[in-house]
Design a protein around this nucleic acid. Sequence first.
DNA 1: GCGATCAGTT
DNA 2: CACAACTGATCGC
Length: 438
Amino acid sequence: MEKGLISVDRWTEHSQAYFLTHLHSDHTQGLSSSWAKGPIFCSRLTAKLFPFKFPGFNLSLLRLLAVGTWHSISLVSPSSASSSTLQVMPIDAHHCPGAVMFLFRGEFGCLLYTGDFRWETTSKRAEIGRTMLLNALKDDVVDILYLDNTYCNPSYAFPSRAIIAQQVIDIIVSHPEHDIIIGIDSLGKEDLLLHISHELKIKIWVWPERLQTMHLLGFHDIFTTKTSLTRVRAVPRYSFSVETLEGLNTMHPTIGIMPSGLPWVVRPLENGDKLFGSLLTSRYNRSKWSGNGGNHTEKPNGNLGSVEKFHKYIYSVPYSDHSCFAEIEDFVKLVQPTNMKGIVSSSSCYVDPLYYFGRLCGAYQSAQSLPHNKRKERVERVLAVNNKTTFRCGASAGVERKRAMTVKVKSSGIHASRMSALRRKKRGAKIEENDRPN
DNA sequence: GCGATCAGTT
DNA sequence: CACAACTGATCGC
């Protein structure tokens, strides 16, 4: 029954075309240098980085899609052998270099797959992305939004990356004699390092492979592999540990900065008097974050206000490449999809995005009233289409059924149940034909 | 050697 | 402890 049309960030099944949102390894599981199942559509930058991640990959399989423009792709239906045309537009996801969302139009309707994304509202780049998306959507209605729901819970509230970057500067400046270690992954957080380099007029050490990546990204005079040139080093996150810091401190005073992790988790709103996290949470101050900058702090004992020091040598800062709850909400309000599904379900506190945002959806609105609502007509048209073309998400039909049941529970007003039984890794999505809904 | 899975790490 | 993203060990082929 595998009659897939297209796959997004999924590599296990056979499809007519494959789409890759970005090159983080949790989106490329099943993809390898010996890939031969079919063409892969991605952004220009992702394609540029591709050989580094997959040496020896047959690059003729890559199809470059320019960000912000529509592309037509002809596909042959595996079931009927008839050809159909798919339109796709990649849109900057502001997640890591090359990361895009995909907006699809075709017989199946209009689908938006965000991949991983950060939807900040403050930066110039965010404004461009917003305009691009609005122009792309025009009068069209997104039938299904596949949403990065990593932090889709009101307890996830954190400031923009620009504000956190400035806090990192403050940490470094307040340790003028220390070496600085920053934990990063193989892709992402470049803007933070560029900010440090620019503000402090200092080069940043990276490991040799990362320097190659930086060169591919076009950064040539900022990073170095010579330790003698700088006191700031970006190291692989997996080599960043308490032991590492303690070892380094036997030789030279050194602090670590971890721009990630979840020590910034604040208490869940529905459970106000019971701390969800540890004592770490109490020092985070929302009002400081929501202010303009809010980075100049009182520094008791040399600490910085909303920056968390959770170890003698380690600071944790909430620099996230995923949208916080408020940003996800902004995004859903902007897109106003008819329906939506979360693409991440690994969290033990996973809650279907419909639980929080269902009221913003067309499906909910049209179910309420207005038989002549344009949106409702559209929904019905799409539902008919969906009888033969279904956007399937997940590893197996069985798991997908459970998910559908969950949606039903949520929309009937029952409090969201936790879905730890459904723990799964992040998945991609796949369009299949002749897949009977339920 | 290859991919898949599992157990760790921040 | 929660996450995302990653390494490394192990297993079957």
